[in-house]
C-alpha cells in the first residue's frame, strides 16, 4: 500500500525513505505531487515553456540521482525547489550569454523603494477582464521584473514558501528576501494599476 494511503495523508518523509531504497513508485508519487508546482516555478523564472520542461526534468532527475545526499533537515519540496531555481537561473544565464534574448532592463536599482503611481483600484479588478486576458496581464507584469525580484516573488507569493524557505532555496539572507519581495510587490502593484485603476481616478500622486 502506498505510504500516503497508510497514513491517510500525504506523508512526504515516508515516500522519500522508500524512494531512497530504490522504490520507483514512491518517487513517482513525489513527482506527481510536485511536478505541477516545479513546472510553474520554472516557467515563471525562465519565462519559457521549453526551458521550463527541461528544468522540470533536470530537477527530478538530479533529485533521484542525489537522493542519498538529501539529509532530511529541510523538506523534500524545499530541496527540489532549490534545485529547480538553480537550473532555471542557469537557463537564464545561458540565454543571456547566447544574446538570444534581451537583457533585463533594470527598472529600479535605487536602494530606496520609490512609489510613483497611486490610484484607487476597482473593487474587484479581476472582473474587468476574462480569465485569459487577466492571466496575460499578470504574466507580462511578472516578466517585467528583474530576475532577482521575480524569483523571490514567485517563491513567496505564488508558491507560498515562507521567508526562511525562500532564503534557503535561493542561498540569500532573510533580509534580502524581504527587501526584494517588497520591491517586487510594489513594482507589480504599479504595473497592474495601469489596468485596474478605477475609472475617473486619473490622478497621479508623487511621493
Amino acid at each position: 500500500m502506498p505510504a500516503t494511503q497508510e497514513a491517510g495523508i500525504f506523508d512526504e518523509s515516508a515516500l522519500v525513505a522508500k524512494a531512497r531504497e530504490g522504490d520507483l513508485a514512491a518517487f513517482n508519487e513525489l513527482v506527481n505531487s510536485y511536478s505541477r508546482k516545479i513546472f510553474r516555478l520554472a516557467k515563471h523564472i525562465t519565462q519559457n515553456e521549453e526551458d521550463a520542461e527541461d528544468v522540470l526534468q533536470e530537477t527530478f532527475l538530479k533529485a533521484f540521482e542525489h537522493l542519498g545526499d538529501f539529509q532530511g533537515q529541510s523538506k523534500f519540496y524545499t530541496w527540489i525547489v532549490r534545485i529547480a531555481v538553480n537550473e532555471s537561473l542557469m537557463k537564464l544565464r545561458k540565454r543571456k550569454s547566447d544574446r538570444s534574448v534581451p537583457l533585463d532592463e533594470p527598472v529600479d536599482t535605487g536602494e530606496d523603494t520609490v512609489v510613483r503611481e497611486i490610484a484607487v483600484w476597482d473593487e474587484n479588478p479581476e472582473q474587468k477582464y476574462s480569465r485569459e486576458e487577466l492571466g496575460q496581464i499578470l504574466d507580462e507584469a511578472v516578466q517585467g521584473l528583474r530576475p532577482a525580484f521575480r524569483t523571490v516573488f514567485v517563491l513567496r507569493d505564488i508558491e507560498e514558501l515562507s521567508t526562511e524557505e525562500t532564503a534557503e532555496a535561493l542561498g540569500i539572507s532573510v533580509p534580502a528576501v524581504k527587501s526584494r519581495l517588497l520591491r517586487a510587490r510594489l513594482q507589480l502593484r504599479e504595473k497592474l494599476t495601469r489596468f485596474f485603476k478605477r475609472k475617473g481616478d486619473d490622478v497621479f500622486a508623487y511621493m
Binding site: S35, L56, R131, L134, G135, L138, D157, L188, R189
Partner: peptide, 28 residues
C-alpha cells in the same frame, strides 16, 4: 498603496494556477 498591494498579491494567488500539460508529465 496598502489596499492595492494587498489586491496585487490576492489576484496573483487566485489566477496563476498552472496546469501541467499531460505530455510534459508523461515525458517526465
Amino acid at each position: 498603496i496598502l489596499d492595492t498591494t494587498k489586491k496585487t498579491i490576492q489576484v496573483y494567488k487566485g489566477v496563476l494556477a498552472q496546469t501541467l500539460p499531460q505530455d510534459v508529465q508523461a515525458r517526465l
